[in-house]
Structure formats: C-alpha cells, structure tokens
C-alpha cells in the first residue's frame, strides 16, 4: 500500500486537480487507485465525474464500514470517496486514514489523500513510507510559506518524505521564472519537476473529466505522467 498526501500550502493552489489527474495517471498501469477527499470544502468528486446532486460522503456516516457505501468508481477505474456534507460527527480524518488500511488489497495499490490547506501536516500520523506533497504556486506568498514550513519541519521530528511541488507554472512570467530558478537550487525539498499552467486542466472539469483524458497531446498530460513516474520510483526506493 502506498500512501500519498497532497495538500496546498494555502488555498487555491490547485491541489484537487493534481489529485484527480494523478489518480488517473497512476491508474493507467492497471493498479488499484483510491482517492480520498479529506477536505470539507472539497470537490474531488466533481473532477472524477460524480453527479452534482450527490451530496453524501464519508462524513455523513458513523463508521467506516457504512461510509464505504460512498465509494464511487470513475470511468478509468479510480475508486474515490467524497467528503460529503459533514452531517455526522462520528468520523474524522485520522480515523478515515487509519481505516483505509483495511482496504489494502495489494501491495501495489495507491491511496491518494486530498488534504485541506488549513490542516497542518503535523496533525497526520505519518510513517516513513508516506509521501507528503505540499503544493505551491510560483509567487512570493508561497515562497514565504514554504520557508516557514521548512522551519517547522526542522524543529519537529519528521520521518515522512516531504516535498514541495510547484503547480500552475507559467514560464512567460518573469517573477515565476526567476522564482522557480531560485527554488530549484535554494529551496530544500523541492520536487525535481513541476506542473505547467495549462488551460486544459481547468477546461477538463467543465467536461467532468480530467486533463489527461481530454488532451493527451498536452503538456499537462506529460507533466502528470512524469509526476506519476517520479512517485513510482520514490515508492520503489522506499521498498528497498
């Protein structure tokens, strides 16, 4: 079982799109992929083709066993669990994460957790095989948040693998291009790849689909495939 946690360093960095596209990219090699929405304001379901009227999720159930009813499967075979409308206070995110262990049907399965931006990483109980991706955009605010995060990571005991992943990168912007170049050498824990800004990521949701299905010849497709590939190699290194 491989767990990946994705969280925006602040709101609106495009985390959910990454989760949806990454899930489909990983699914291309026919392994079980689960995407769990832990964000109360989350909309993961809409990215993966869930009907708009559907309002229930795991947060409407008292226990995990009953919450499992809410697992949906999209056209690519990604199984996802939406957040819901929080009508039941029986479950919280840590119990969901714990309970997902029960679903572990094979070693190769991937669990992607779409985490809300306001919940700090330290509130998750992570072990050393987990990968935590903190999504940042190329601007000065994220730059300052990133360094703040680095401070907290240094002070605490952090055994998981933490990375900063740049999203919505636009090289035509002078600030973004300068900043990314700075980060690539000066920002520790920056991931060795970035997701380019691509209109199709936004457009795809209007089609209730993900970018990699809508535009196979786009750069976005490439980027998500690279992301998947990189995560695979990280995970296999963990296994060794």
């Amino acid at each position: 079982m491989k767990r990946i946690f994705l969280k925006g360093i602040k709101g609106g960095t495009g985390t959910t799109s990454i989760v949806a596209n990454l899930a489909c990219a990983l699914r291309k090699s026919n392994v079980p992929v689960y995407a769990i929405d832990l964000d109360p304001k989350g909309d993961l379901g809409l990215h993966l083709g869930l009907a708009w009227e559907h309002q229930l999720g795991w947060s409407d159930y008292p226990n995990f066993a009953s919450a499992c009813e809410q697992f949906h499967q999209d056209n690519d075979g990604v199984k996802f669990l939406p957040y819901g409308s929080h009508s039941n206070l029986g479950l919280d995110f840590s119990s969901i994460i714990e309970s997902c262990q029960q679903l572990n049907d094979s070693d190769d399965s991937w669990f992607l957790f779409d985490c809300p931006a306001h919940v700090d990483v330290h509130r998750y109980s992570l072990n050393e095989d987990d990968i935590f991706l903190e999504i940042i955009n190329c601007d000065a605010i994220c730059h300052s948040f990133a360094f703040k995060r680095l401070n907290t990571l240094k002070q605490a005991e952090s055994s998981w693998q933490h990375y900063f992943l740049t999203n919505k990168y636009n090289s035509a912007s002078e600030l973004e291009s300068d900043l990314l170049q700075l980060w690539q050498t000066e920002l520790p824990l920056i991931a060795p790849l970035y997701i380019n800004k691509d209109e199709v990521i936004k457009e795809a949701t209007a089609f209730r689909n993900v970018a990699i299905n809508c535009a196979p010849y786009s750069v976005a497709n490439d980027d998500f495939e690279t992301l998947a590939g990189w995560l695979v190699s990280r995970a296999s290194q963990n296994d060794q």
Binding site: L26, S29, D222, D223, E225, T226, G229, S236
Partner: peptide, 11 residues
C-alpha cells in the same frame, strides 16, 4: 507498474 519509470524522456 514500472512503465511509468521511463516516462522521463518525454518531459
């Protein structure tokens, strides 16, 4: 599973 690992060449 490891098909992805060689995708780097297209980035």
């Amino acid at each position: 599973m490891n098909d992805f690992a060689v995708k780097n060449s297209h980035t």
